[in-house]
């Protein structure tokens, strides 16, 4: 890289990272602002954190969101792993093109379309068979599973296509039945990708506002729905506190996961080298 381009690239990098992180830093700083006017500095205080933790509405919504996210992530990981294996290991089966299309489309489908279409489906089903009687936990979980499984599939698929098939083939040659090979060889090998997929699905579900707004019924307010109804009216100090808690929690988890994965990867590489000797 020559020096002129390098200086240009470095300044864009610095600008880009400042652009990404200054808004987050400003939310964190203002969450410790004593003033009720969220934009005027009134001294340091942690009072908004106390108010937040006493706010039952927020706690209820957070609990509902967590339950939905855990259920979604689990189902999305199961379905996504199945779909990923089907797409990268089963060769051409009937209806593969439609299947691949249905897997990739939810990744980019505008949320308003997904949300509206699923709500209309649930309403039609209710008229036809009486289910779902209420919209809330179940309908939001189904909607989230549908788009989150697409992300899991992509992760599993890329892991499987980057993976050497020789281990699986060797096991088959040694007389292992396909089902045993899957459980004894393939699944353990893609376990890190499944964990990554679970975490991504969990985050996507926890994060979603638009789809949940469509498919939720009266009373079923998730945390993003509650936050949105508050921030519509402007910046408020208790949302700053909530945002800070979420930012810190997510950052710490991501950094820990990243560090653990890197260590695991290095360990594997080392083992491979030792094995090769």
């Amino acid at each position: 890289m020559n020096r002129k381009t390098s200086r240009f690239v470095l300044s864009v990098l610095a600008f880009g990272y400042a652009f990404l992180y200054i808004p987050l830093a400003s939310v964190i700083v203002y969450s410790f602002n004593d003033s009720r006017l969220a934009t005027v500095w009134g001294g340091f205080s942690t009072r908004w954190y106390g108010e937040l933790l006493r706010n039952e509405q927020v706690l209820d919504a957070a609990f509902l969101s967590l339950r939905i996210a855990v259920t979604t992530a689990t189902f999305a990981t199961i379905f996504g792993t199945m779909a990923g294996m089907a797409l990268s290991r089963f060769g051409g089966f009937r209806g593969r093109t439609l299947f691949a299309g249905m897997i990739i489309s939810p990744l980019v489908m505008p949320e308003v379309i997904t949300g509206l279409s699923l709500l209309l489906l649930f309403i039609s089903l209710q008229q036809l068979i009486g289910w779902p009687a209420h919209r809330g936990f179940t309908t939001i979980t189904i909607a989230h599973t549908t788009f989150a499984m697409a992300y899991v599939t992509v992760i599993i698929q890329s892991r499987l296509s980057g993976m050497d098939q020789s281990l699986e083939e060797a096991a088959m040659d040694l007389g292992g039945r396909p089902l045993r090979v899957v459980f004894d060889i393939t699944l353990p090998l893609i376990a890190p990708a499944m964990v990554a997929g679970w975490l991504l699905a969990f985050t996507l579900s926890l994060d979603d506002l638009v789809i949940a707004t469509f498919v939720s019924g009266p009373g079923g307010s998730t945390l993003p729905m509650l936050i949105f109804s508050k921030v519509k009216l402007g910046v408020t100090p208790d949302i700053n506190a909530l945002a800070t808690l979420i930012i810190l929690f997510v950052s710490i988890s991501v950094i820990v996961a990243w560090y653990a994965m890197r260590r695991m990867q290095r360990q594997t590489e080392k083992n491979m080298q030792t094995a090769a000797k």
């Binding site: 987050l24 985050t203 930012i247």
Partner: peptide
């Protein structure tokens, strides 16, 4: 990984 809504809010 941090909430989309909160990033817009920021």
């Amino acid at each position: 990984w941090i909430s989309f809504l909160l990033r817009v809010y920021a």
